[in-house]
Simulated assay, not measured.
Amino acid sequence: MAFTGELQENEEEKLIISLPREKGWAVPYVYLFQDFWYPSHAIQGVINSQKYFQAKDGDVIVASFPKSGTTWLKALTFAIVNRQHFSSHKNHPLLASNPHQLVPFLHHIFFGDFHDQISNMAEPRLFGTHVPFPSLPKSIQESNCKVIYICRNPFDTFIYFWYFFNKIKPETSPELTMEEGFERYCKGLIEFGPWWNHMLCYWKESIDRPNKVLFLKYEDLKDDISFHVKRVAEFLGCPFTQDEEISGVIESVINLSSFEKMKDLEVNKSGTTVLNIEKKYFFRKAEVGDWVNYFSLPMRETLSKIIEDKLSGSGLSFKTCP
């Protein structure tokens, strides 16, 4: 078995070396694999998950482009699905664990020794992913498991991405200037990018298969979280009962998963989680429209034009003015 593992690892290394590459953000390089840009470790995770992951009909996949509300949606989904098991908040897992630990990234699991972790997961199994829909394992695409996707206004996504990756970069690496980061972002040269194709893949699936993929916008959740929490529960086949609504269960789920609540928890103030990233870096501002404090007029015009060009005719749109 060890020899087989070494052989597979060598083959994957050869593949990565053969791929087109560009400068990364928090990693030295990103590689063009299956039409999207990945850090090398993610490629290995994607390949292994495509080969070995067997989705179950009850699985839930929380999908997103990075820095689009991933942590929040993971917390909300976990709280919604498990609300019968943890009716008391005193011992709720979200108070003791970071959402990324409760809803692990599939491509991270399959980068390591995944067999034990997968077999020991409680059902329904919840997974996160930044992987574009076409590169998800066939078993996810073809089974009855559910996919919830969240995206964010590309203006805010850039700012949060830029801040985040300057925080997690190696200490020996220089900070990425906003100008350099913006240039790469506009070209789609970003981890799991191009961001427009990432969004459009899930958008198209949500239109073609609304029972399979639920498409959410971060701004819509901020605007009416109660409506969308009920929408997620209905999509997952576990709608809130009238008694639950009357007794305040929806509000309880919302409060438990709120940015303010999670950021204030000791478990999210120290220590590390996925890829040894400090937990506190996953909680910045959670604001809509923060980009107006950073964008110059030329930047605004450039990104507005890209959004218009790339999303034209899709039916997907974002507000580009404050």
Rank of each mutant, 00 (worst) to 15 (best):
L95N: 14
A96P: 01
A96C: 09
S97P: 02
P99S: 04
P99D: 04
H100I: 03
L102P: 02
V103Y: 00
F105W: 08
F105G: 01
H107M: 10
H108A: 10
H108K: 13
I109M: 10
I109L: 15
F110H: 06
D113K: 14
F114N: 13
F114L: 13
H115C: 13
D116L: 13
D116E: 14
D116S: 11
I118G: 05
S119N: 14
N120H: 14
M121E: 13
P124I: 10
R125P: 08
R125M: 13
R125T: 04
L126A: 09
F127V: 02
G128A: 12
G128E: 01
G128W: 00
T129S: 11
T129K: 06
H130C: 10
V131C: 14
P132R: 10
P134A: 09
S135A: 12
S135H: 06
P137Y: 00
P137H: 00
K138F: 01
K138A: 11
K138H: 09
S139Q: 04
I140Q: 06
I140K: 04
N144Q: 15
C145W: 06
C145Y: 04
K146F: 03
K146S: 09
K146W: 05
I148R: 08
I150P: 00
I150L: 08
I150C: 04
I150G: 01
